[in-house]
Simulated assay, not measured.
Amino acid sequence: MAETTKTRSITIAERPLLLSWAGVTDLGRRRETNQDAFLAEYPLFIVADGMGGHAGGEIASRSTVARLEAMVESGEVDRAAIENALELAVADIADHPETTDEGTGTTLTGVFLDVDGDVPQWVSLNIGDSRVYLLRDDRLVQVTTDHSVVQELITAGKLSPEEAEGHPYSNVITRAVGASELTPPDYLTIDVRAGDRFVICSDGLTKELTDYGIQHFLRENADPADAVDAMLAAALENGGRDNVTLVIVQVGEADESPSTTDDDAE
C-alpha cells in the first residue's frame, strides 16, 4: 500500500500551487528480493531499479537513493549536486564487499523542481530504462528515453515498438549507475503547469501496464496514493513478474487539496 499523500505549497509566477505525491515499492509475485528503491522528498522524486546478483542490485539501488537523500537533506538539489551524489554512490557500490559482479548497478530516473532560476522548472533525469511519464491536458507522454538495446534498435529503425515487446534483449540496458565511471544522466526541463501529473516507475510497472492503462488509472484516481495503489494492484494482477515501484507527483491549484495529507506537510 502506498504511503499517505504528502503535499507542499509552491508559488509559480505569483500563482499559488500545491504539489502532492505518493509512492510505493513492492516485491511482485515472482521475485525473492526487492531490488527497487525510491525517494519522494521535495524537491526530488526518483526511482531506482537495481541489477546484478542476488544482493548486488539491492545494494546499488539503495546506495544511490541514500546518497541522493543525503543531498536533499543538505538543501542542495541541482544538476551538479545530483552528479556529485551519484559519483559518491558509484564509489559506495564499488567498495561494498557484496558487489563483486561487474554487472552490478541500478537505473535511476525521476524529476526535481529546480528553483534556482527566476521561474521554477521541473527537470527530469534518467539513466537506464526506468521511466518518467507526464499526463498533461489529458494526454500521456513518455518524458524519458530508455537506455536499452531494444530502444537503440527502435531508434535505428531496425525494430518496431510492437516487435520490441517480448524481444530477447528487452532487459538489456546500455547505461546504469554502477561500480565504474559514472555517465551523467540525460536531463530535460519542463515548465510547471497546474494539472500536470508525473508517473515515475521501474519497468516492473511498464511490463504489466500499457500507456493506456497508466492513463486510465490516473484519470480514475484524483489522489496520488489512490492512483499508486490502483496501478500496483493492476500490475500484480497482470502477473507481477518483477519488482514494481512507482511515484506519482501532481500539481494542483492551492485550493485543490488532496483528500489525505501528511501531518508534516508544509
Rank of each mutant, 00 (worst) to 15 (best):
A94S: 15
E83N: 15
A94V: 07
V192P: 00
I12K: 01
R219N: 09
R241L: 12
T109G: 05
N221F: 05
G50W: 10
A233Y: 11
T99M: 10
R29I: 11
N221P: 06
V192F: 00
D36F: 14
A179R: 15
F198E: 09
L159R: 14
L27I: 13
P16N: 00
A254P: 01
G239V: 13
T64Q: 12
E3I: 14
E41K: 12
D263H: 08
S20A: 07
R29W: 05
E266W: 03
H167I: 07
I127W: 15
Y187A: 04
M51P: 05
S180H: 12
W122C: 06
N171S: 15
D114I: 00
Y212W: 08
V119M: 03
H216S: 13
L159H: 14
V251C: 10
I93K: 00
L125D: 02
I190K: 11
I214Q: 06
P224W: 00
V141L: 14
V90M: 08
S9Q: 13
T261Q: 13
E165C: 05
P161H: 11
V228S: 11
G128K: 07
R62F: 14
T260L: 05
V192G: 00
P43A: 01
Q35E: 15
V77Q: 04
G252F: 02
P16E: 00
A194M: 09
T99L: 06
L27A: 01
M71W: 12
D95E: 12
V119N: 02
D92P: 05
A60E: 06
R8T: 04
L68A: 04
R241V: 11
A22N: 00
A227S: 12
V244P: 09
T104N: 09
G52T: 01
T109L: 02
R131H: 13
A176H: 08
E162H: 04
A55P: 03
T106K: 12
E162W: 03
I154S: 05
T107L: 07
P43I: 01
V65D: 07
G157D: 10
Q215I: 07
F112C: 04
Q250L: 03
I173R: 04
V24L: 15
D26E: 11
A179I: 09
R8Y: 02
D36G: 10
R79Q: 15
G110T: 09
E208K: 02
F45M: 06
D116V: 10
D191K: 07
F45A: 00
S9V: 03
A91C: 09
P97F: 01
A222S: 14
T174F: 15
N243R: 10
T109M: 08
L108C: 08
D262Y: 11
E102V: 10
R62H: 14
E165I: 07
D229E: 15
T189F: 14
A48R: 01
